[in-house]
């Protein structure tokens, strides 16, 4: 379980997050949505310890963010940041192999290699395993990063807008993979999404943020409503339901 209590965050005197308290149970996909500047990415990066936590408390299972060792957290929580720019020129297989680093600390065993190959196979990267990251498509590149997080073998996975710059095939493919990881491997996934429809279609829970506060929390059917679009997103798009799932008519 990821538990946040009384989290405040300021950037240069401006309050980005206001007293956020939230409990995310184990399992399933939780989508963080909200308009630009609502604090979604900030919240995610606080949990991921990419931004130092100043006020409040965040725990992941028994580990307290800011107090626990980075290495211990890396065995429980994997992250995929918004910018996946790598200055080093790496091959896909090399990148995925870094997922095992928290476990072997530079001395990989045969078991680590087997897990890396399994991750490559699982994410259909075997064929392009020897290609350089800058030679593959955007979708393949994102898949490689997810495969790395998968190889890290953590219970939790945080992703910050992984669908950016992906076409519809890439975006759907990636979301399906995440869905599989949640359903078959019991991963707990927290993902920042821009597109409400992707959140409604793939997530089990939605947390909507507005100006640094939680505006709504629940299943997609509960959260995605005309009032959410009006009050949180400031737009009056219509919503229709297909198979019980809400869709925003854009």
């Amino acid at each position: 379980m990821i538990r946040l209590s009384g989290v405040n965050h300021f950037i240069g005197g401006t309050q980005i997050l206001h007293d956020i308290s939230l409990e995310l149970p184990k399992g399933g996909i939780t989508a963080l949505i909200g308009p630009n500047g609502a604090g979604k990415s900030t919240l995610l990066s606080l949990i991921a310890r990419l931004t130092p936590l100043k006020q409040g408390e965040i725990t992941v299972d028994t580990l307290k963010i800011g107090a626990c060792a980075d290495r211990d957290l890396a065995k429980v929580l994997a992250i995929m940041a918004q910018s996946t720019h790598v200055s080093a020129r790496l091959r896909v297989r090399e990148l995925v192999s870094f997922g095992r680093y928290p476990w072997h600390r530079g001395r990989p065993t045969a078991a680590d290699d087997a897990l890396i190959e399994a991750a490559l196979a699982r994410f259909e990267l075997l064929e392009i395993g020897d290609r350089f990251l800058d030679e593959v498509s955007g979708g393949q590149r994102q898949r490689a990063f997810v495969a790395m997080a998968f190889a890290q073998d953590t219970d939790y996975l945080l992703l910050d807008e992984p669908l950016n710059n992906l076409d519809i095939a890439g975006a759907r493919g990636l979301m399906r993979l995440l869905r599989e990881m949640a359903d078959n491997d019991g991963k707990t996934i927290l993902i920042v999404l821009h597109d409400i429809n992707y959140a409604a279609a793939f997530a089990d829970r939605i947390v909507a943020l507005k100006q640094g506060r939680i505006a709504a929390l629940g299943t997609p059917a509960e959260v995605v409503s005309n009032s959410l679009l009006r009050d949180v997103f400031g737009t009056d798009a219509e919503i229709s339901h297909i198979d019980g799932r809400p869709f925003v008519m854009v």
Binding site: R49, L50, A74, A78, I79, A81, T84, V86, F98, G99
Partner: peptide
């Protein structure tokens, strides 16, 4: 090697 992956990724790997 891990640091060369960038700050965010390196942090994620502990």
């Amino acid at each position: 090697d891990v640091l060369a992956l960038g700050d965010a990724t390196a942090t994620g790997l502990g």
